[in-house]
Design a protein around this nucleic acid. Structure first.
Lengths: 176, 176
DNA sequence: TTTTAACTTGAACAACTGCTCAAAAACAAC
DNA sequence: GTTGTTTTTGAGCAGTTGTTCAAGTTAAAA
């Protein structure tokens, strides 16, 4: 999606018109505003991310393996300009001057953190991970690591290190 | 700086005029273009970051303590909109369609990574850290952790966790 | 087939964008 | 004080922005 690549304010409505193949009137009667269209795509992004994670958890032996597979998929399928999570990009773009988009972003991020916490709770119950830290603390570590990693892989010549850095990430999590 | 807060393309030249108190003609005779002015401020940002790091290293017993103090200072003095490193923000904003700004950003980030490597090399020489990984690997871990942390602290109600998360970051580094 | 309702179109809007350039002001050398 | 040089000014340009709205098209109901 174009909003993912370029962000909200640097994407023009004319670009959007061509990419969704609608004329201004139709867009504005369907979404109300550029903001409305963005909101909708951010929600779609969040649900798809959630679904992708869920499917990897289901198809893996352990929760940790599922998270690992999820990270691999996300990082390896990153197209140009979409290396960074759209939610993270949104959270750095909006402040109190765009209250609606800010609170929406915060809510979706909180939702994702909660989903992760649940997964880490299950991982602990199954004995995959230690009980030295709370599920929420694990979720925070995961997010910080994931965000930092995706940002780092935005640099030139960094692709070959992807596998090694993911390995590092999960070593850190397992030893946490 | 305004460019730090809002990024390159969402900062208008009129806003810049008021903040640097110059009229268009003066700005364009001094910097050539909006791009030139941005380049200059990014360079200034990078040198100031380097100086800040160096001063914390000098005033600390160990290299690791210096890095710790540096991180604390950066995270606690983060004003509104400047939670994320300007270099990181720049690296997510520019792609091949803005080659000059992209390569400048990449170069400055590479420089910073090199400086960090040197510091971690010294830390290893002094026996502060293990030799299980190369200085460059330590530098990468630091950057990923630092970037992820700063992004995470952009969320609402996260300020009280700052200290704890920095603690986590350095525990991970020491055990790496 | 006619009437009504719903959707789509694209020209046009006011505001904003990065940037230019002739004129004015400030400064320097003599 | 006069000349020459450098710097600053701000009105204005051509292009883009998000958005509107009357007119046109399509689809459903009668």
């Amino acid at each position: 999606m174009l909003f993912w690549k370029k962000g909200f304010s640097t994407t023009s409505t004319r670009d959007l018109q061509t990419v969704v193949d609608m004329r201004p009137g139709s867009i504005y009667s369907a979404f109300g505003s550029k903001e409305g269209l963005y909101s909708e795509s951010l929600k779609v992004y969040a649900t798809q991310l959630k679904l992708l994670l869920a499917s990897h958890i289901e198809n893996s032996e352990t929760v940790v393996d599922g998270l690992h597979a999820f990270v691999v998929t996300v990082l390896e399928s990153a197209e140009d300009g979409c290396e960074v999570c759209m939610l993270i990009k949104a959270s750095t773009e909006f402040d109190h001057t765009q209250p609606k988009l800010k609170t929406l972003t915060d809510d979706l991020l909180q939702q994702f953190e909660h989903d992760l916490s649940t997964l880490f709770y299950i991982a602990q119950q199954r004995g995959e991970l230690a009980n030295t830290h709370s599920p929420l603390e694990y979720a925070r570590l995961f997010q910080i690591q994931f965000t930092g990693l995706r940002s780092y892989l935005h640099r030139p010549m960094s692709k070959p290190m992807t596998e090694q850095l993911i390995g590092m990430m999960f070593t850190l999590i397992k030893n946490y």
